[in-house]
Design a protein around this nucleic acid. Structure first.
Lengths: 173, 173
DNA sequence: ATTTATGCAAAGTTTTTGCAGGTTG
DNA sequence: CAACCTGCAAAAACTTTGCATAAAT
């Protein structure tokens, strides 16, 4: 049988939030686990990285951002971070396992904050790109077990189902 | 517990095969299921498509090709198919569910022939891009069940594990 | 015949990089 | 102040497209 699938599917869409304050560098960054991970490997905490992280934290759970979308949000809030830096930061945070890098099939990647507490997987319509999410900690567990079988240190386990949504099933002749 | 994982992992690499004969158009294409799928939707059987399909069929199970790699193999065997056609064909065959479109994380897609009999999933090292495969029909089944729960017609279920291979685990300080 | 596919070259996207100047620890 | 980061603009990598010609049904 299948692991427990919490029926928490919802549509993926962009949320247009107002701009919010960005902290000045170094404000009460006491024990932030993300920043700790950065420091631990000799990376630095910059204003740009703080703002980017903040944006990801403000994203509703399950939303993901492309590099362009992140950049747009940065500009929206008056933070003049360059697109190049957005790309560099996304790559860095992903390599540290702090962001999750998602590939659907539209030619660019999406990123979301990694939160071990809320694994979630995707089911994608190849007809209209509708993306639903579902959660199944059984799958997460399977990833860990398979990884350790091959002596891998697992960073992320992704289960993706491609298919046709009810609508596109009909339209398809 | 986990479904049966057949320990059939192997490295992904390029096999340099010699060029082989390509059939002239229309030779004994009797009931080829791939060509049937094409015809059924009004697409045509061209020499280019035949050669491309043949290349995928000659690939050892588990190997995947990028558009560039496919194109290289086409040239190797003297088939002057343009890169544009390679891209167009890959897209077409994938949309028909005949090829499986794989995204690892290196900026381009890979494709492999879809064979329902031999599902396989990937575990990818984010340090060195080493890719191992494993099979687990339990996961395949899970994909079907989850898909039908959302009323999707499932085309493909992919389970991908990202992590650090034993080597990169060490090198990483 | 009619419709679909191909090749070419040009254009479009997405991502990376070199380098000079700025910032962090 | 040494090492690291950023912005900018240019380049690279990857993919799509317009159009005239060629091929398939």
């Amino acid at each position: 049988m299948i692991g427990d699938i919490m029926n928490s599917a919802k549509k993926t869409s962009d949320s247009l939030d107002k701009d919010e304050d960005k902290l000045p560098v170094g404000e009460s960054l006491g024990q932030d686990p993300v920043f700790d991970s950065l420091r631990k490997r000799g990376h630095r905490i910059t204003a740009q990285r703080e703002t980017i992280l903040q944006i990801f934290r403000e994203q509703p759970h399950g939303e993901h951002l492309s590099a362009e979308e992140l950049h747009a949000k940065l500009l929206e809030r008056g933070s003049n971070v360059s697109l190049a830096t957005a790309y560099r930061t996304l790559k860095l945070l992903s390599s540290l396992g702090l962001l999750r890098e998602l590939d659907f099939a539209e030619g660019h990647k999406h990123y979301e904050l990694k939160q071990d507490t809320l694994p979630h997987q995707h089911i994608i319509c190849t007809g209209c790109n509708l993306t639903l999410e579902f959660e199944d900690h059984f799958l997460e567990e399977a990833g860990q077990k398979i990884g350790s079988r091959y002596n891998f240190e697992v960073i992320d386990a992704q289960f993706k189902i491609f298919g046709l949504c009810p609508n596109c099933k009909l339209k398809r002749r």
